[in-house]
């Protein structure tokens, strides 16, 4: 393994200082990005979560008053406390909501995998000239608004919806099924919405796989099914892991699907967060909920990054 940086330096014959600046710039870009789009908003939310509610605009105190000088800053920091986080542990609504979100996300991810894997497999085994079209079909739903698509599911799943009408018509059921406003509807909505995020990484792993590996496995005595379990599945594992995280991480904080398709029994932290912000106008507690949610998500995000990194290393 060579050192690409040095090679560039030599072959381009570029000045050493110029090269250093170019590298510093390349390194700086992602950090500035991270700072602007993640760390700054995060600290704003963290700050609000340490504040108290107030009938004001914005609806919390303290606010930083720089005109007071140094005393203003110390005053500001002395008023921050962890009260809201303590509150989260006292009312069992919150941890139940977190737990329920994680549970719903896990189950939904498993379902998405069950539906997504065969689709990805089929795409990767399809004749080469069809693959771009199939890929297009997978991405196509993104061209319409997410909200409209979820509303469409309400039309399908409601008691008078197309699904019930169809089932009544073919005579499978005699009274309409209640699907809308239950967890079932939430699962359907999540699987439908997040399926492409599962399919695409698995597809890319499967498509890269060398067909002759399956032949080698068969040659060495595997049946088709054994070859699938022993070769195809392990080789698509990075894709499976990536897909699962890509689905699970956003689903834990999902708000639109549970509030439109779920019922009163559907407890998800995204919904709680929304209610704290907009119904209760309790920004500090809502922010505390958001901070804890982020901390919960850090674990799978770190694991996801690890997986991606291992994969790129293996490819080199």
């Amino acid at each position: 393994m060579g050192r690409p940086g040095l090679a560039v330096l030599d072959s381009n014959g570029r000045g050493f200082v110029g090269e250093l600046m170019r590298r510093a710039f390349l390194i700086a870009v992602p950090y500035v990005w991270l700072l602007a789009l993640f760390l700054v908003p995060f600290f704003i939310v963290l700050k609000i979560s340490l504040s108290d509610t107030a009938l004001a605009i914005p609806p919390y105190t303290p606010t930083l008053d720089l005109s007071q000088g140094w005393s203003g800053i110390t005053e500001f920091f002395s008023q921050l406390d962890f009260e809201n986080f303590v509150w989260l542990t006292e009312d069992d609504l919150y941890w139940k909501a977190y737990l329920s979100s994680v549970k719903i996300a896990l189950i939904a991810t498993i379902f998405t995998l069950i539906f997504g894997y065969p689709i990805a497999y089929g795409m990767a085994r399809a004749p080469e000239e069809w693959r771009p079209t199939l890929m297009m079909l997978i991405i196509l739903p993104f061209w319409t608004s997410f909200l409209i698509r979820v509303y469409a599911w309400m039309g399908i799943l409601s008691n008078e919806g197309y699904l019930n009408q169809f089932l009544l018509w073919i005579g499978v059921i005699s009274t309409p099924l209640t699907i809308l406003n239950t967890n079932t509807a939430v699962y359907i909505g999540i699987v439908y919405t997040y399926l492409p995020f599962m399919i695409l990484p698995i597809y890319s792993a499967l498509e890269r796989m060398d067909e002759s590996l399956i032949e080698a496995a068969e040659d060495l005595g595997c049946s088709r099914i054994q070859a699938f379990w022993l070769v195809t599945i392990p080789l698509s594992r990075p894709g499976i892991i990536a897909g699962c995280f890509l689905v699970m991480i956003p689903v834990i904080g999902e708000f639109v699907i549970p509030s439109l398709l779920g019922g009163s029994g559907t407890l998800m932290i995204g919904k709680v967060l929304w209610e704290e912000f907009f119904s209760n106008r309790d920004w500090p507690v809502a922010s505390a909920v958001a901070v804890v949610l982020l901390l919960i998500l850090v674990v799978p995000i770190v694991l996801f990054q690890r997986n991606q990194q291992k994969q790129t290393e293996a490819e080199q």
Binding site: A216, D219, L235
Partner: peptide, 20 residues
Amino acid sequence: IPPNKRAVNMMFQSYALFPH
């Protein structure tokens, strides 16, 4: 007769080693 039932083994031109 499918490949896995033949008393034949092949060394592939591309080796086809299992990377995992």
